[in-house]
Design a protein around this nucleic acid. Structure first.
Lengths: 226, 226
DNA sequence: CGCGCCTGAGCGAGCGTTCGATCGGAGCTC
DNA sequence: GAGCTCCGATCGAACGCTCGCTCAGGCGCG
């Protein structure tokens, strides 16, 4: 388990109580999440973060290296929550296909619940210093990996059909269709509720995974040209 | 055709040459697109935009109300290009299904070509003033509407099967799977090239649109619970 | 007193924006 | 065509302000 990137304050003068550090950092993250969601990273000032976490700017900078460091902590926190919630509900393993169906449902519920947080990562992670960004992206791949594993399990037990080369792509499709529920809510919510959404997207994904690998296109149709 | 939001400078003193205004604004947009892609909106200064467009800050502010106004012009410009390119290749109407297949291919090509621009809109449009943001989102819906129309045409001529209630959602799916090629390129590019991507995603989408509306889930499977 | 912890005024760089000065060429007069 | 005026277009120093961050000091507990 690697250490946080540029972050992880060298701790200025003395050795602090590590428990207090954890508590304070959580306060900071909680406050920052709220503010970043409401106003965005750039429009939020460090003074506001301090005020909202119930400490002074001085104290804030005892527990955090920089404003960007706060953003990193926020992203890390959200990703960890997300991943934990997902893995948590996938303990009981069944037939691959049913696991997948369950996982999609669970995932979409989590995405519905964490809409704002997902949006936050999407819109602000580019403001991270490069090293931290790489870190966050790696975490994103790990989460995608959860679905890759489920898909592969389905291939092995024969309950899913798919060109093995497309496993990664399908996993990303699932992830992105979930995120879509978060960042297109301004329009989707006007037409569908969560259950509608789960139904249609599950159908889309599982339909593909049941008969043909790359087929699906009715054969005999021409037009492979342009 | 509505007028630009808060934008559209009242023109300070005298009447300027409207043709020059157009040219200068295009210079500004071109420079800004490059800079925003490279450094992001917040990290780009107005001075840089001016320098890169070959004018002074003073001149810049003759053609633009504010930095946010530049961002709006950029978004508008990208969306217009995108929409024009899409509509442009959909003139010859065929059977709905083939039109859709063609449109998806064309769309993914455009997205591949405009990766950076798509990413730009995604990450920076939240920095727009609310009124301009609404404008940009409306444009996004219009573009989605192109695919809604194609889908409906397919329903009418019987070449596509789909629950009519899901038309909007499927259109959004297409749009988002296209955007995914832009904003997940850091990983997708490692595994797939554009043709792979087009093949798998077309299969996914068209497979669903050919036999069942919401079916796809093998009947008799339980687990509608949790 | 010493030490961990906190405070918040203050620093200074950087930013978006303004505005008086300047440029340069078109048009006029003689 | 020389000299002049005029005016839109351009310039960039300067302004005012915000913000991330620091640091000299204070408080209370052991």
């Amino acid at each position: 388990m690697p250490v946080r990137p540029s972050t992880s304050k060298p701790i200025p003068t003395a050795v602090k109580d590590p428990q207090l550090v954890e508590v304070r950092r959580q306060q900071i993250v909680d406050a920052a999440v709220d503010l970043f969601i409401k106003k965005g990273f750039h429009r939020t000032t460090t003074r506001e973060i301090a005020r909202e976490s119930g400490m002074s700017i001085g104290a804030l900078y005892e527990y955090v290296e920089s404003k960007e460091d706060v953003l990193y902590l926020v992203c890390e926190n959200i990703h960890n929550t997300l991943e934990a919630r997902l893995r948590d509900t996938l303990k009981e393993a069944q037939n691959g296909r049913e696991t997948l169906r369950l996982a999609i449902r669970q995932y979409l519920y989590v995405m519905d619940d964490m809409q704002d947080d997902v949006l936050l990562i999407y819109q602000e992670s580019k403001s991270l210093p490069p090293e931290s960004l790489r870190y966050v992206l790696r975490k994103e791949e790990q989460i995608t990996g959860i679905f890759e594993d489920i898909l592969r399990r389905g291939l092995e037990d024969g309950s899913l059909q798919l060109d093995p080369r497309a496993v990664t792509l399908m996993a990303h499709n699932i992830i992105v269709l979930g995120q879509m529920w978060a960042f297109r809510r301004w329009v989707l919510r006007r037409h569908y509720d969560l259950e509608d959404y789960i139904r249609v997207q599950t159908s889309l994904l599982l339909n593909e995974l049941m008969d043909s690998g790359t087929g699906g296109e009715a054969r005999g149709e021409t037009d492979d040209g342009n």
